[in-house]
Design a protein around this nucleic acid. Sequence first.
DNA 1: GCTTGTGAAACGTTTCACAGCA
DNA 2: TGCTGTGAAACGTTTCACAAGC
Lengths: 214, 214
Amino acid sequence: MPRYANVPGPTIRRLSLYLRQLEAMWSAGRDTVSSKQLGDALGVTDAQVRKDLAYFGQFGRPGIGYRVPHLIDQARMILGTDQTWRAALVGAGNLGRALIAYRGLARKGFKIVAVLDRDASIIGRPLPDSDGLAVLPVSTLPEVVPAKNIRIGIIAVPAPEAQPVADLMLQAGVQGIVNFAPVALNVPPGVPVSAIDLAIHFEQVAFQVAELAD
Amino acid sequence: MPRYANVPGPTIRRLSLYLRQLEAMWSAGRDTVSSKQLGDALGVTDAQVRKDLAYFGQFGRPGIGYRVPHLIDQARMILGTDQTWRAALVGAGNLGRALIAYRGLARKGFKIVAVLDRDASIIGRPLPDSDGLAVLPVSTLPEVVPAKNIRIGIIAVPAPEAQPVADLMLQAGVQGIVNFAPVALNVPPGVPVSAIDLAIHFEQVAFQVAELAD
DNA sequence: GCTTGTGAAACGTTTCACAGCA
DNA sequence: TGCTGTGAAACGTTTCACAAGC
């Protein structure tokens, strides 16, 4: 029963960008915006912006443009960030701790309510900037996920541990995964996974720079 | 004079994935791989793998497949990670320090050789896991970039500071940017930028999960 | 028998261009 | 006049299907 079954993937990715830009514009005191203005700010054509938004409804007014706060509300509803998403983080290394401290996630409604690790030497330790969370053993995932109403799992462990952690997460009832480990996860079809491989982004820049030089 | 002008963007993004998977397979002792095997590991069709690789040359042997180490070498050459890329990191907060400590970047040839920040209270401080780097003032970017042969800039500062930092980086001679700030950078056309907005990846998972539920 | 490389077909996305409305 | 929403055209990417090679 998908709400937006025929919406192209690229459109959904850009919707996140539109929302981010709209929030910035609203903070800057802007009340309305045209597809051209929104597109220019993001390097997208005005036609693209209109087509994208039209997949979800008719939000604009000819001659005027889009009302910024209204479009923000709509985009949040569509993306699901009008609600709070409780997440479990596995891996309390440098990256994991950076995620805990990052306010941008909470601001979007993502709350890390459990932090787990395999390393016995850090289990039980309180985490800075975390509202008093302490590190739990990964093995408690099956109890913690239902008990804390967790829907999203965050993987921030070394590559070789990522697959077993993902398996355990899904078994525990997690509905979607954000994966920072540099490895392709094998999950059942239809399970939402977003992968962020830092090194790959650097590689893409390196390729483009090399292209320019030659 | 681009070497690979007509190669689709998605193909270049997948080439990074192929390389990562091939490195894992080589570590696991695999010597040859077919397009089907490589594709299955990544959720891509065999035809897609072959088309992608064929944009860059003829690397395979009918009836056999691809020689793993040879394909790794080729992919590294194409992506540019057969060389070392020296990078400057601006922003020594939680995320910045996680990047400094992350070995995966160095393993791919990306070396952070300068760390800068605006915050006077941390300037001069030595950084853990950094080979003895100390934090420099952002204002020294114009001297540091040429002096240390830096080609890539990494932005890990709060959103409002990202644009001025980007401007300063490009003025200082940086050739490409990896941007972790949740804001669209305005850069001259053709300047390679890769943007990583952590919150957006979470949002995409939330959307997909919400789609399943309804 | 198995697998590549590749034209051709199928498919999906973006851009165009304009009717209709403020 | 300015701007949206949208069919239709243009463009780009993926999949198909098979000849050729191991």
